[in-house]
Simulated scan of single mutants.
Amino acid sequence: MPPIRHIFLDDGDVMNDNAVRGPQWQRLIGEFFVPRLGGTMEAWAAANTSIVDEVDGRYWSALSAGRPGDAVWREYNIDWLRSMAAEVGVQVPDDDDDCHALAQTAIGFIRPRIQSAYPGAIEAIKRLAADKYELYTASNEHSEVLQAYLEGMGVRHLFRAFYGPDLVRAIKPDVAYYERIFADSGVDPAASLVLDDKLSHLESAAAAGARIVVVSTDAPLDGEVPVIRALADLPALLASERLE
């Protein structure tokens, strides 16, 4: 088995804490849209919470159907903004291009301001890069969104590519998602390590030939799949050679 040289990191609940990120998202949505479209901070926060699962579901379904990522992302942005505005009771631009541009501007405002990295995660990423591991994302977030989050963390420059479903027209836990990111990056799956908080995703990564580690605060430590409690623990696990 070759040594591990490539590391693919999930974002939510691996690098960033979704429980911390969600409230920040809701506050920043209000900060951006209230001065531009009206409504209240509370109404925008509630609207985002109300519509996000349904809008995300339509986005992932379209990508799973193999539709081009750029077109689906444009539709997602329009759907996201119009769905929230309908809940808040305010008007958005009628023109799709204008609506998309406003949504993109909002996302560009919000994403880099999010500060939800787990303690020690940024330091771990820097240590992995210093140890000459090639770093990639492996997330169900859009590739542009991932870049913005990592820019806000100050580590974007340490990643070689930012894999989201828009780039490979597949979503986790499909095995095709991992097969396509390994093929696109040109890496040997056997020399690759995938970290995720969801075992179903990791099982697909393993089926595509990679080694896997679960990031979980409550998974048993004596199971078949290696477990770490936080990304901050990964450099020590790699140094122990228990994955080789």
Rank of each mutant, 00 (worst) to 15 (best):
F8M: 12
F8K: 05
L9W: 12
G12R: 10
V14R: 03
V14P: 03
M15K: 01
N16R: 11
N16F: 15
N16P: 00
A19N: 08
P23H: 07
P23D: 03
P23V: 00
Q24C: 03
Q24I: 01
L28H: 11
L28E: 04
I29D: 09
I29F: 15
G30N: 04
G30S: 04
G30L: 03
V34Y: 08
P35A: 09
R36S: 02
L37F: 05
L37Q: 07
G38D: 07
G38R: 04
G38F: 03
G39T: 03
T40H: 09
M41V: 07
E42L: 09
W44A: 07
W44N: 05
A45N: 05
A46L: 09
N48E: 14
E54C: 14
G57W: 12
G57M: 10
R58V: 02
Y59V: 00
W60N: 10
S61K: 12
A62T: 07
L63Y: 13
A65E: 15
G66D: 15
R67Y: 13
W73A: 12
E75W: 11
N77C: 15
N77F: 12
D79S: 13
W80A: 11
S83M: 01
M84N: 08
A86L: 09
E87T: 08
E87G: 04
V88P: 04
Q91L: 05
P93A: 04
D94M: 04
D94C: 02
D95C: 00
D96C: 01
D98Y: 00
A101S: 06
A103N: 02
